[in-house]
Lab assay of single mutants.
Amino acid sequence: QIFVKTLTGKTITLEVEPSDTIENVKAKIQDKEGIPPDQQRLIFAGKQLEDGRTLSDYNIQKESTLHLVL
């Protein structure tokens, strides 16, 4: 699982696999929060994550925290 922290300070927990794409993660966030993926920007280690890449591409491991910017 990974954590996604929103600007409001809320933390969302997501069940993911390293092979999941960023697009996939955004879809999971939409399921939980109702935020359309095209409004979501995910930041990890100061980098904006691209939809077509996977979590493992960015070396995002379990218990990692991503930041969600709208």
Rank of each mutant, 00 (worst) to 15 (best):
Q1H: 15
Q1T: 15
Q1F: 15
I2Q: 01
I2G: 01
I2N: 01
F3Y: 14
V4I: 13
V4K: 00
V4A: 02
V4F: 03
L7R: 09
L7V: 14
L7P: 14
L7I: 15
T8F: 13
T8E: 13
G9F: 04
G9N: 06
G9V: 02
G9W: 03
G9P: 02
K10A: 08
T11D: 04
T11E: 06
T11R: 07
I12C: 03
I12E: 01
T13N: 06
L14S: 01
L14C: 04
L14I: 14
E15T: 11
E15K: 07
E15V: 10
E15N: 11
E15D: 14
V16W: 12
V16K: 01
V16L: 07
V16F: 12
E17N: 11
E17H: 10
P18R: 04
P18I: 10
P18A: 12
P18E: 10
P18H: 08
S19N: 11
T21D: 03
I22C: 03
N24K: 12
N24Y: 12
V25N: 00
V25K: 00
K26H: 02
K26A: 02
A27H: 12
A27S: 12
A27G: 11
A27R: 15
K28N: 04
K28H: 05
I29T: 01
I29N: 00
D31Y: 11
D31H: 12
K32L: 13
E33W: 13
G34I: 02
G34P: 02
I35M: 05
I35N: 03
I35P: 04
P36S: 08
P36F: 05
P36A: 10
P37C: 11
P37V: 14
P37M: 14
D38V: 09
Q40M: 14
R41G: 07
R41P: 01
L42W: 01
G46C: 10
G46Q: 04
G46N: 07
G46E: 06
K47C: 13
Q48S: 10
Q48Y: 13
Q48R: 07
Q48M: 15
L49C: 05
L49E: 00
E50F: 06
E50I: 08
E50K: 08
E50P: 03
G52S: 12
G52E: 10
R53S: 07
T54R: 11
T54Y: 07
L55A: 02
S56G: 11
D57V: 03
D57M: 04
Y58T: 02
Y58D: 02
N59Y: 06
N59H: 10
I60L: 04
Q61F: 09
Q61W: 07
K62H: 15
K62L: 15
K62S: 15
K62A: 15
K62I: 14
E63T: 06
E63F: 12
S64M: 11
S64H: 08
L66M: 05
L66Q: 01
H67P: 01
L68R: 00
L68H: 01
V69N: 06
L70C: 14
L70V: 14
